[in-house]
Computed example of a mutant assay.
Amino acid sequence: MQMSMIFNESLRLYPPFAGFGRKVEREVRLGDVIVPANVALVISNLSFHHDPRIWGQDAQLFKPERFAEGVAKATNNNIGAFVPFGIGPRSCVGLNFAINEAKIALSMILQRYSFTLSPGYVHSPIQYVTVRPQHGVQVMLHPL
């Protein structure tokens, strides 16, 4: 459970894609806005992944315990508030593969090493196809 909480919080703060595109097939009302047919929209999941009305005033902080009781409880049953891989029939087909692969890789590393961030690490995420660290992730591995 702990690893899932850490992955979910990491994906909330730094989703693989900062937004996803959708095309409006027919005129639709979104709140007070009327969107005409054939309009392409870019939906920023970063905006609602960092919304203090959903996540609290500490929305910018890394707090995996938000997900201690699952995604539904963390989002107050707002299914569209946490969508790092999209939502619905167009969500990323690689979702389960990516999560399972990351869990396996991290489990294999943690069996043999502990790690700390390098003192020279600079936190600087950028959007380049996917969200990634601009200067890489410099870590120091310590054999167990």
Rank of each mutant, 00 (worst) to 15 (best):
S124L: 03
L117T: 09
E9K: 00
H50A: 02
A102G: 13
F97M: 14
Q2H: 10
V39N: 05
Y14I: 03
H123Q: 01
F48P: 06
I99E: 09
G19S: 10
G120D: 14
I6C: 07
V131H: 04
L110D: 11
E25P: 00
L41W: 02
T130R: 05
I109M: 15
Q134P: 00
N96P: 03
V83T: 15
A105M: 13
Y121N: 00
Q57R: 07
K73P: 01
L11F: 02
E9C: 02
V42E: 08
L13E: 03
R132C: 05
S124F: 01
I43Y: 01
I126D: 01
P36G: 12
E27R: 13
S91M: 13
M1Q: 13
L46H: 03
G94F: 10
L61N: 04
L110Q: 06
V33M: 13
L106I: 12
R53E: 15
L117Q: 06
T116R: 15
V93I: 15
Q111S: 13
R112Q: 15
M1V: 03
S44V: 07
L30H: 11
N76P: 10
H50S: 05
R12W: 03
A37F: 04
D51V: 04
A59Q: 05
C92K: 08
G70K: 09
A37H: 07
F115Q: 08
T130F: 08
R112D: 14
A102T: 12
Q134F: 06
V28Q: 12
I104L: 14
R90V: 06
L95V: 12
R22S: 09
L41Y: 04
P36F: 13
A81S: 14
G136Y: 04
R53V: 07
Q134D: 05
F20D: 03
Q111Y: 12
S114N: 14
G88R: 06
V71I: 15
P52M: 10
L117G: 04
R132I: 08
I43W: 03
R53N: 15
A18E: 08
N45K: 01
P84K: 02
E69H: 13
E27Q: 15
Y128V: 00
Y14Q: 06
F17V: 03
R112W: 12
K73M: 06
Q60R: 04
S114M: 09
V122I: 07
Q2G: 04
S47D: 14
A74E: 05
V129I: 14
S44R: 07
A74D: 08
I126G: 01
L30Q: 10
P52V: 04
Y121E: 08
F17M: 03
V137N: 07
R66T: 05
Q2Y: 12
L141Q: 11
Y14G: 01
A68R: 10
M1L: 09
F20Q: 09
G88W: 05
E101G: 04
H142Q: 14
A68M: 05
Y113E: 10
A68Q: 07
V71R: 03
Y121T: 08
N78Q: 15
D58V: 00
H50V: 02
S4D: 14
G31E: 12
L141I: 12
